[in-house]
Amino acid sequence: METKNIMIVGVGGQGTLLTSRILGGIMLSAGYDVKLSEVHGMAQRGGSVVTYVRYGDKVAEPIVEEGCADVLIAFERLEAMRYVQFLKKDGVLIVNDQRIDPMPVVTGAAQYPENIIENLSKQYKVYSIDAQSEALKMGNARVFNIIVLGMAAKHMNFSKDEWLKVIEETVPPKTIYINKAAFIKGFEF
């Protein structure tokens, strides 16, 4: 099988590491060679963060190159725009419809771009969701990332049950129920 490339981008602190652990877990359980690369340290403090996940028969480098991603999962609109050139022409962009102003925008040194999702939709296959609101409705704002993952999961070749099993094995025991529910919410959105 040709190597598949997934990327997760967002703002440090949004839970990209947990999401990538679940992604890595499902690919491992399916018997693929998996490589995954993530960002720790200073960038995690509210900076732009990116995680690469690659799986296939034999994977060499751990990072995804520009123009090669099959699925790009963005936890924030501006981050979707920052990394969209990593998508293949027929790649899929899953974007959480949330705006988090970076410091240059807060201080007035830069403008937050308008109509990001509309503009990206002209070039790419884009699926968006306001996962923050959906998660709040479920009573736990933090699980928004699993809702987005659920939405992205529809574009990967694993069954719902396989996903739920990996989620159960990956998240803290107390949060299994809410995370599973969040996944299903995204998967069926």
Partner: peptide
Amino acid sequence: PEVKPYDVPARPPILC
């Protein structure tokens, strides 16, 4: 790569 990145505002790390 064919597609060039958009010119977007940077997102440097910040205090939480």
